[in-house]
Write a protein that binds this DNA or RNA. Structure first.
Lengths: 213, 213
DNA sequence: CATTGTGAACTCATTCACAGCG
DNA sequence: CGCTGTGAATGAGTTCACAATG
């Protein structure tokens, strides 16, 4: 086992995928699954599944496969999604509002505990969930008070860096950034970007160059 | 020059990033930029910038750097974003609605020309933009009529595959999928996934394992 | 002479192939 | 016997280092 060797970033992404498929398999009543079947469901190579899991332990039974429920639980533990997380979101426009009512977040233990904006017209607005839009000036206090662990950025690009800096100053060092701009953060801060237009650019590139449209 | 060698997928992603930074540089009045500066802005290695560009041609001047305007134009041409694209979106919930009013899409030439849902309560609704929500049954006709080139999926996971199949049947073979599920498509179809919860899972994994939270 | 363009070296990731084992 | 676990082989992607050059 190579539990100590460096783990590819893509491995973590795939673990999340495996976990989701295992939930579906469990829901469908499956008790065991082979690396081949799980790999097929996730559109990856079977050896890839086994290697990915191999970084973290031996979860299977030779000649049989993996216990669906158990493997799911193990992966959740590895990904640290065997507990809930508190999110704060800044920038309550169309996208921010949509994320606040996005069912898949609470279903997976990701709970928005605070929403921030700088627009006086929005501040104070109460959502049906009970969440109130706060002034970004209150961000640092709210982080402490509500134990915000992850900051979500849905502001316009021009102000995104400033908001990230506020989160950093409040010791939130994990950021999920939806703003299509390059955010600069220190080593100690984790940032994941979700960039819609980059994905569209990749599609158009391939349409032209692979499909010849 | 290695224009013929296989181009890494990540190169395309970075070209999109370079393009955006070049637009900002142009806006700020810069005429020339070095690979070192562009690399710094995008948080990549300068050699990476030069190699990425090298796949497509020689765009720089030795000892000087790259012409900001010209390089931007060249990259737009490479990515095929030097023209507009017609999008159709299926699943007009919170996320779908947010995307329909997302300013960054039309600003970059990505225009929604049709919206689809299967909920009778939503069908017929008219947005301020003039766009009408159509029945998914009309999808194939609308694709032809409106020349939809890219399908955007914002439906619940359970029905996402079915909608993708409708797009495929209508000869739309580029899909931007926001639904957190594994979509199966034939070789000839391009699909890019935007998966919010996977990104959150990556963050929580790193919070636990890199920052030790 | 500063900066590009690029082969070579290196690092990282995936797949193969088979030994190990229930 | 079948499927996992994993070292070895392969492949892909990044960085280095320096020759080429405006």
């Amino acid at each position: 086992m190579n539990r100590d060797s460096k783990i590819p970033k893509a491995t973590i992404t795939r673990l999340s995928l495996y976990c989701r498929q295992l939930e579906l398999l469990e829901f469908d009543g499956y008790r065991m699954v082979s690396s081949e079947k799980l790999a097929w469901l996730c559109r990856v190579n079977p050896a890839q599944v086994r290697k990915d899991l191999g970084y973290f332990g031996e979860f299977g039974v030779r000649g049989v496969g993996y216990d669906v429920r158990d493997l799911k639980r193990q992966i959740k533990k590895i990904l640290a999604i065997n507990r809930d997380w508190n999110l704060g979101i800044a920038g309550i426009g169309n996208l921010g509002t949509a994320l606040l009512s996005y069912q898949n977040f609470p279903a997976r233990g990701f709970n928005f505990v605070a929403a921030f904006d700088s627009d006086p017209k929005k501040i104070g607005k109460v959502f049906s969930s009970g969440l109130v839009i706060r002034d970004v000036d209150e961000l640092k206090n709210a982080v402490k008070e509500l134990n915000i662990e992850i900051g979500v950025i849905t502001t316009p690009p021009a102000v995104a860096q400033g908001i990230v800096d506020l989160f950093l100053d409040a010791n939130v060092n994990a950021i999920l950034n939806f703003s299509p701009t390059q955010i600069h953060v220190p080593e100690c801060c984790l940032i994941e970007n979700i960039d819609f237009t980059i994905k569209l650019d990749v599609l158009t590139y391939k349409l032209k160059n692979e499909l010849g449209i």
